[in-house]
Simulated assay, not measured.
Amino acid sequence: MIQPAPTLPIIDLSLLHQGARDRARVAEQLDSACKQFGFFYLVGHGVTEQSVRSLMSLARQFFATPVEDKLSIHMSKGGRAWRGYFPVGEELTSGRPDGKEGIYFGTELDDSDARVRAGIPLHGRNLFPTTHALREPVLAYIDDLTQLGHRLMSLLATALGLDTEFFRTHYTRDPTILFRIFNYPRRTDGHTGWGVGEHTDYGFITLLKQDDVGGLQVRHADRWLEVPDVAGSFVCNVGDMLERLTRGRYVSALHRVRSSPTRDRLSMALFFDPGFDAVLTPIEDVRPDSDQPHTHVRWDDIDPHAAVGTYGEYLLSKVGRVFPGLRAEAMEHDES
């Protein structure tokens, strides 16, 4: 008999208002979800549905404009900050063009910031279209989800038996924040195809808001699970560096997106990651779960458990494969 597919856990942060015992219970649920799936839904998070819907509406309006207008903020104009718009086919996963377009944002830094003056990649100003009022909603959304990321990492510290401020103290006092808005155009040939192929995320935690089109899938054991939208939720998943720090206790799970033949799909992903200069060595007090097998075979042949150096170095090695042209530009700057 074919067993029904398991469903992702739903973690309710509103329970945290009820006392220490409930915090321990939520932390235990998070620990289980990160061990078993590496994915879960987050509800009761405090981010207003109005702010989410407003930003998604503005994003749809932007993606509906002619491509010539969108190219006015093409990523090539963002310099080493690697911010701005890219059209369908320009971003690669495992060397293959994705079936999505998108805009890259990050922490807003002006030209006087020391990291910007030093020319460190992924640091700088965002590019915003002059024809759409995205700036303030995007920056407010980044702030809201950054705070949510800190709360979530504090809970994960509790789940791991660490001090609640462990991650903020050692890794995320100044987190690397990357925010992407993606549009997956419907397949005009009437068939479904991969908007983005199977991959893992790079850092600590991804906070994803998706519409109701569907198409997101996560690998669990020997099957792919559908991850439909749950009203009022974020889909959250573990990244490579959290798997590394926890010695494989938590799983940076493979996931992918199948495009729809009938509707465009919109998603907004905020990546809450370690500080750029953070050196990530496995946490001594954390042990892998006995039931969780550790595999060194990775989707892109880069094993996070073998990584050395800083998170920034690891991140650049990953992003360089996604946008090889931009990485070449950055390398030329480093050599000059």
Score class of each variant (00 low, 15 high):
Leu254Arg: 01
Leu266Ala: 03
Thr295Val: 00
Asp291Gln: 14
Leu266Ser: 06
Asp285Phe: 06
Ser233Ala: 15
Arg298Trp: 00
Ala278Gly: 06
Glu284Cys: 08
Gly232Trp: 10
Leu315Val: 06
His294Trp: 07
Val227His: 06
Arg321Phe: 04
Leu315Phe: 15
Ala269Pro: 14
Leu316Asp: 08
Arg287Tyr: 10
Tyr314Cys: 09
Val319His: 01
Gly312Thr: 10
Val279Ala: 14
Gly312Pro: 07
Phe234Tyr: 15
Arg258Phe: 07
Asn237Asp: 06
Gly309Pro: 01
Ala307Val: 06
Asp285Gln: 15
Phe276Leu: 14
Ile283Val: 15
Ser260Glu: 02
Asp240Glu: 13
Asp289Leu: 00
Pro274Ile: 08
Val230Lys: 00
Pro293Thr: 01
Ser252Tyr: 07
His296Arg: 15
Ala231Thr: 07
Gly232Asp: 10
His294Glu: 03
Arg265Leu: 09
Ser259Arg: 07
Gly248Trp: 02
Ser267Gly: 13
Ser317Met: 11
Val227Lys: 02
Val238Ser: 04
Ser259His: 01
Phe234Lys: 03
Lys318Tyr: 07
Arg247Met: 02
Gly275Gln: 05
Gly239Ser: 11
Asp289Glu: 10
Thr246Gln: 04
Val235Trp: 02
Gly312Phe: 12
Thr262Phe: 10
Asp285Cys: 08
Arg249Tyr: 06
Glu243Val: 06
Gly239Lys: 12
Thr246Ile: 05
Ala253Tyr: 04
Arg244Ala: 13
Thr295Asn: 00
Glu226Met: 08
Val319Gln: 14
Ser290Phe: 09
Asp264Thr: 02
Gly239Pro: 11
Met268Asn: 01
Thr246Asn: 04
Phe234Ala: 05
Asp303Ser: 02
Ser317Phe: 02
Pro293Tyr: 01
Arg263Ile: 00
Arg258Trp: 10
His255Phe: 09
Arg256Gly: 06
Arg265Asp: 12
Ser260Met: 04
Cys236Arg: 07
Ser290Leu: 13
Val297Pro: 00
Asn237Ala: 12
Asp277Gly: 11
Leu242Ala: 12
Ser259Phe: 02
His296Gly: 11
Ser290Cys: 08
Thr246Asp: 03
Phe271Ile: 02
Arg258Ile: 15
Gly309Val: 08
Ile302His: 11
